[in-house]
Computed example of a mutant assay.
Amino acid sequence: MTTIIHRCHWCGTDPDYVRYHDQVWGRPVRDSQELFAKLCLEGQQAGLSWITILRKQQHYENAFCQFNPYQLVTMPQAQRDALIHNAGIVRNRLKIAAIFKNAGAYLALAEQGIAFNAFLWEFSQGKPRIFARQGGDIPATDEVSDAMAKALKKLGFSFVGSTICYALMQAVGMVNDHVVDCHCYASICEQMETFSL
């Protein structure tokens, strides 16, 4: 007898999406640089489907110094300019520039003694928010993502609107938006309940 595995409907049956859904999406992330990378990648998605960015993630990591902010800010301008010709990423000048701008904002926070992970997780009081979502009641924004977007923009980050911030929170486990009948829901709840920075 075949066992039916229930997943969130958005991942469909595409192997890349299924792998991302099962192994990455919604699992709490503590590391500042990983959070920075995910914020930048979510920004690259604006106007596109996430699968497009997911399939280009390795190219982004190679092109943008594994999203190391310290290396990004010292990248020579000629190398930055050449990225518009990199077929492995989304060739949008504003989106490319945003990653460098975000790296500068990240480092400005660090210079104030503020860790990026602590800054982001403070919006959810330092712990994941666990919901019991059904298929049709998952929001695109909420008051927390609104506040995060406003704060990030004030600090000089780009491509950080409320929708992008909510998608980030979903991706890095600040909220559990797996639906309750998804096979990942219970295990992610367990991870969230023991989470600490």
Rank of each mutant, 00 (worst) to 15 (best):
L107Y: 08
T74D: 03
D31K: 12
M75N: 07
Q23K: 13
A87H: 14
L83S: 07
L109N: 10
G104I: 00
Y70T: 09
R91E: 08
F159Y: 10
V29L: 07
R91A: 12
R19L: 13
Q44C: 07
A108F: 01
D81C: 13
I53V: 14
D137T: 06
Q77G: 06
E34H: 11
F100Q: 10
Q125T: 08
L54A: 08
F64C: 08
G43L: 02
V73M: 06
S145G: 05
L83Q: 10
I99N: 03
A63C: 09
E190I: 07
L155T: 04
P76A: 10
A82E: 09
V180K: 06
T13V: 12
I114D: 03
T141S: 03
R133C: 12
G47I: 00
V29I: 10
H59G: 05
G156T: 03
N176G: 08
G136D: 13
N102R: 03
L54F: 01
Q44S: 04
L155A: 13
A97C: 09
Q58V: 13
N117W: 10
D181N: 14
T194C: 12
Q58H: 11
G173E: 04
N102V: 03
T13K: 15
N92L: 02
I130A: 10
Y70C: 09
D181Y: 13
V73E: 01
C184E: 08
Q44E: 05
V24N: 12
A132H: 15
A151E: 08
K154A: 15
R55K: 15
H21V: 03
S49D: 04
Y106K: 08
L152E: 07
S187Q: 15
P139W: 07
D31M: 11
L197T: 06
L168G: 06
C165R: 09
G43S: 02
Q77T: 13
H21C: 09
A108K: 12
W25H: 10
Y60N: 02
V90M: 10
K56Q: 13
